[in-house]
Amino acid sequence: MTEIVKSITTPIRLEYVYRPGRATSRFLRGLAEGRILGQRCPVTGKVYVPPRGASPTHGVPTEEEVEVRDTGTVTTFCIVRIPSEGLSIPPPFVAAHILLDGADIPFFALIHECPFDQVRMGMRVKAVWVSKEELAPTFESIRYFKPLDEPDAPFESYREHL
């Protein structure tokens, strides 16, 4: 009798060294100082956060650095209710697009300190940072965003960012 092999397990392990590039390096250094640094497109004047070094619409370097605020407006969001590999946070949690004050593109982040069913489009939020000692050149320097005690931004103010 020949038994058919239906499956074999072949583990693959490859190691890579990732390098963020100039623009992202500047951004990460900023986070280590508790600042959020964007870059301005020289053609459109729009501020990109996090910057990737290129104006995606014009293919030119974004060189002018612009510091943006750590407050912003939730443009849209979803409530994640299923667990996912590589995510340490237990569901449900809120993943949101946040238009930081001074930026022209929404920033992807988590929202806490607010019941998830009370998160809404237009809600004003502020970054919660790790302690000064823990600040490092990594996205984890911002733990999450929490609600601000401010009136919601009107839909028209962020409509073009959806």
């Binding site: 390098r19 963020p20 590039g21 623009a23 992202t24 070094g53 293919g59």
Partner: peptide, 25 residues
């Protein structure tokens, strides 16, 4: 290339090839 990411490497190359051809983006 330790400093530039792929996009940062590509931008000047694409710009140079386009400029040399005289064909606008």
């Amino acid at each position: 290339e330790t400093e530039r990411n792929e996009v940062e490497m590509l931008m000047p190359v694409v710009a140079e090839a386009l400029a040399a051809s005289g064909i606008a983006r």
